[in-house]
Nucleic acid binder design. Sequence first.
RNA 1: GCGCCCGUAGCUCAAUCGGAUAGAGCAUCAGCCUUCUAAGCUGAGGGUUAGUGGUUCGAGUCCACUCGGGCGUACCA
Length: 542
Amino acid sequence: MKEYLKSLFEEASERLEYLKGINLVFDVPKNESHGDLSSNVAMLLTKQLKKNPRLIAEEIITALKTDNKIISKTEIAGPGFINFFFTPYFVSGIIKEILVSPDTFGKSDKHKGKRANVEFVSANPTGPLTVGHGRNAVTGDTVANMLEWIGYEVDREYYFNNAGRQMRVLGDSVRLRYLEILGEKNNFPEDYYQGEYIKEIAKKLFDEFGSKLKNEDPEGVFKEIAEKEIFKEIEKTLSRLSIKHKIFYNENSLYEEKKIESLLKTYKEKNFSYEKDGAIWLKLTELGNESDKVIVKSTGEPTYRLPDIAYHITKYERGYDLMVDLFGSDHNATYPDVLAGLKALGYDTDKVKVLIHQFVTIMEGGEVVKMSTRKANYITLDELIDEVGSDVVRYFFNMRNITSHMNFDLELAKKHSDENPVFYLQYAHARICSILKMTEREELKSSTENLSLLSTNEEQLLLKKLRQFKEEIEYSTELFEAHRICAYLEELAALFHRFYTVCRIIGSEKNLAEARIALVTATRAVLKNGLTILGVTAPERM
RNA sequence: GCGCCCGUAGCUCAAUCGGAUAGAGCAUCAGCCUUCUAAGCUGAGGGUUAGUGGUUCGAGUCCACUCGGGCGUACCA
């Protein structure tokens, strides 16, 4: 629709000089009596032309050579909007476009040939994933899906660190629990990992090795096994949400491959770093940031910034055109340093898109549940999936803008799970499947021969919504906002349900019935594709 | 103190570069199944968009200030 109008305006600019090179925007008006598409161009020109916007609008309309097979009406409304109304003939044509290739309708090759890396979850293996990680995981995977849909080849990546204090404590936590099983009394420290899963790992070790590990070092087998077991669980949890990372990148390999060392050397050579108080600092103030930051502590150990920068450099070296980083708002102070460090070395940081999601607040019984992995005071992602299912979890995290703080009322999620909007969408899909089975029995087929028979208000509104799908995906992806897709699908499902209650297939005249079958088949395809992007299943019956 | 995010209906959230009468779901109330799935549809009530001022044809959206909440502000990640 928009493409057609754009070409009309372009052609008209031959006659109306001021239309040349103008930034044309068409909106779908909220109120359907304002037409199918609306332009505010006349109002934007008032300053330049010093004329009443309605007069400008009139000039524009006379200059447009509209085809009355496509456009049924143009009007000037309100302060100077130009509203366009499309013919039913044109509107229904979308069905043919969808049915040519239903499974790929909405895909675009806009970014074909480009490669993207989406890094998400990236939790260190110290415990099970919590609900908070769930938001990160679902958002990351959905962003990856969206990018694939507009043509990117996407690698899903998980960055982790199995060195450092956290992991030492983890290993020792397991060791102490193991010794407890052997009957040894000890004072389990308060700041150690309190979770049940530690005891389970210890039990596993006892079952396999008996008391042989009594004098083992906490850094050795305890840590190793703990890491392995926990990662296994993390991957299992993610796979329940249909999430699979292609690459697991261990921070350690940056050291092994001397990337940290060489980066440090580069900064020194280029005079971006200096020594002070026994530490090495990066000159971030010179790069426009607030203050210089330490990259190597006086102990000789790098801070997180150095490996983070080195890590991102590997992404550039691996040739990605787009790198998406996803993390929670608690990390929002860290990425400017990393980006500045990259920019200093000449890397194009426009290729990095940092997405920060706000926290998930868990409410239970009207109370906020404080989350801490170490204190084992958390609700795991697994428990949540057990309660409400993968589809609800994915949809729930996708349906809200990540910039918003999110209240997750557990009681409500459990109790009212069958009233979740995801079921509304799935129900629409299942309903269509059921209709199509029924019409098959009646020996009715889908036909695009008489689509102009689809002229009721319900049919036209549904058709127009189907037309918006592709643009909706592109727009949502450019903004990295999956919640728009949820909103779109809910509107689409609502229009379908309304169509269903008013327009019948079986019992209608044959040509009309077959056109309607084509319509619902197309609707089913769009619903399914939308749900697929969100990572939600499209059941054939409910 | 400073930085980022947020404040919209009773609750959870939308609102397409600033567009026309601020929309959904839940909850509440009133209707609709002898006919393709009632997990559905129709209707009603519910708002000073936290507040004040500014920018303009037009502001929930942009700017300034105030109030309130979250997360940061390390030689932790």
